[in-house]
Design a protein around this nucleic acid. Structure first.
Lengths: 354, 354
DNA sequence: TAGGTTTACGCAATCGATTTAAATTTTAAA
DNA sequence: TTTAAAATTTAAATCGATTGCGTAAACCTA
């Protein structure tokens, strides 16, 4: 296709000259401005439709310094709960007449910064962010905040209070997960956690500790093992480390499903029975939890709802003056095979380790 | 944050007036135009850096009718091989100085059209597309093609030849998968396929048939069962349907892993042994293949490479006049537990059904 | 040194939609 | 019939970067 063949876009000027009115009238008619007569509006819209007019959003954005686009910046789009979050946000955004643009940071701060610049460049109307794992300096978001562009942090939220956020109650979730293990008879419970400078992992850990304390169970720093990435590789590493302990725990609360599954596989390969010897509960309720054997108990993460609420906050911030707000959603335990000791106890059971 | 507080962006005019030169010179200096003196360029860049100047890509796009952004439109970002494709494309795009914007169609034609308009609206420089399942009319892409904006179809490609594409050799893949089952001793092989109006599924099916023919095995239309969505639910449905056949096949080639896994689970739940009674091979090599029991044999899909090649074609199309080209990559069989009959045959084996 | 080139830069138009302020037409009250 | 008020519409500026065209200054060459 050579240059000359390119179709030229229809502009408001084309419509204006054909209707023998001014471009400003066309613009206002298309935007349903009150000052334009009903007849004129109808005529403009009719012709616009006929001619296949499509507003040049670039020009519009240049003038208004806005777009009808919400940027979503996440760590990895292939994480099930992240894509659910996006799906929820897309749904809500679409209903409100907004488009959504997605970028991923691969958990890398530099990419986070680069994407941020890009999204700022295309003048997204608002931004929904799930932070990169390492991020603990938030100054690169000032570009948006200083310009009054709403930023909503979702799930991986920053440790500062003067920003809008949607998240889950990680403390309660950690507590519930641990309590669930306790209810299944676990006496010595380990925790595979994410880096505690991310509040969500810290809170899950706090919940875990609180449950131990409430039930008068042993707490010890050696029971908490941290993962940098919460990846499958890390899961194996953590499980290996777990097995070096003097007393092997009989329950593990993992900060995500990926680590839980990987650890479970490794422990089983080493001859441990799950849940009899070691019960395991994950976090997020990824679809894979139901596909493995034993199926993985986990905390259900309302990721899709989180996305919807994030957009709801965006819309509020866009309509009114910029408001700070935090929405916190609840989670619940999903019991599956990896912690289901009740049934097993029907049959004679070999005694737990530790 | 109220309106008045907003920081104003630095423009080339700000730089120009401070340096007492014209805005055009600033613009050219920043773009390294040959006609600008080295001294001037240095001074402009220095001040730009100091002042934190950031080019307004919206204004630039308006003027040039281009952006430095590549749009990627896929069906579902949470499919492992799709996110790999995106990762590959992002990597290649980044190296070439392009940004990437992702949208998903949820396999819905209307969303495909809406996203297309949006991406056109923000003047992406090029588009990489994996088609929605139902798409068999491609006229909505004319908006791009008629305007000389490169469109590269990836993986799910259209049934027309005058467009650029990157894909895998689905015929060979289907052949290899089937041949692999045959090599494992399967005599009667079923195929769970995607809708054949998508060429990739059609080709896999052709490969399947060709392998049967070459090995003089029974071919019958009842052995081919089509799925609309290739989802887990469908996988179960297809397996149920398979069990209604007069003679139960001893091997299944599934058009994706999701269906394969779901079908396998169902068959095992019905008392069949995999791979002894029925061997199963999937397609894509999703990570989950290694996590289930038995592990799933599959066709490795070079999705990430596909993404890289797609961007390579974009860059070619952008540099030169728009060229049509097709890149086809090879796949290979990954043998895992679900087809591993050789080892089992060491021990006495109950005879295959059918 | 006159005339021709280069080099380096500025002017002003342009991209298309929006918006302020002003002009025009219509309506309604006096 | 006037005239103020209301309802429409328009002209022109604007958003910020790019670019065709023009030109002054510096540099050559014969």
């Amino acid at each position: 296709m050579s240059q000359e063949d390119k179709k030229k876009d229809i502009t408001i000027y084309d419509l204006a000259s054909e209707l023998k009115i001014s471009a400003s009238t066309v613009s206002r008619a298309l935007n349903d401005h009150f000052s334009i007569g009903a007849e004129t509006k109808k005529a403009v819209r009719k012709l616009a439709k006929e001619k296949g007019y499509r507003t040049n959003v670039i020009a519009s954005s240049l003038r208004t310094n806005k777009s009808s686009t919400i940027g979503i910046m996440v760590t990895w789009i292939n994480r099930p709960f992240i894509s659910s979050l996006i799906a929820g946000a897309e749904k809500a955004a679409k209903e409100a007449g907004y488009q959504v643009i997605i970028t991923q940071t691969h958990d890398d701060i530099e990419m986070e910064k680069a994407n941020l610049k890009m999204l700022y460049g295309i003048r997204v109307s608002a931004l929904i962010v799930s932070l990169a794992m390492e991020t603990n300096d938030y100054s690169h978001f000032d570009l948006f905040l200083d310009n009054g562009i709403p930023v909503i942090f979702a799930d991986r939220i920053p440790k500062k209070s003067n920003v809008s956020m949607v998240n889950i109650n990680n403390f309660n979730a950690g507590f519930d997960a641990t309590q669930h293990l306790i209810d299944q008879g676990c006496k010595r419970i380990a925790h595979f956690g994410g880096l505690p400078h991310q509040t969500l992992y810290e809170d899950r850990c706090f919940g875990y500790k609180a449950a131990l304390k409430k039930n008068n169970l042993y707490e010890g720093e050696e029971l908490i093992i941290y993962a940098n990435q919460l990846s499958a590789d890390e899961g194996k590493r953590l499980a290996e480390q777990l097995l070096t302990l003097d007393i092997i725990p009989d329950g593990i609360f993992c900060a995500n499903d990926t680590v839980a599954i990987s650890a479970m596989k490794y422990l089983i390969s080493q001859g441990y029975n799950v849940p009899e010897d070691i019960a395991i509960i994950g976090f997020n309720d990824d679809p894979i939890c139901q596909l493995i054997n034993p199926t993985l108990s986990t905390i259900h993460h309302p990721a899709e709802k989180l996305g919807e609420y994030a957009v709801a906050q965006v819309l509020l911030a866009l309509e009114k003056d910029y408001k700070i707000a935090t929405t916190t959603l609840d989670t619940y335990v999903v019991q599956r095979g990896s912690t289901d000791r009740k049934i097993k106890q029907m049959k004679p059971l070999k005694s737990n380790i530790g």
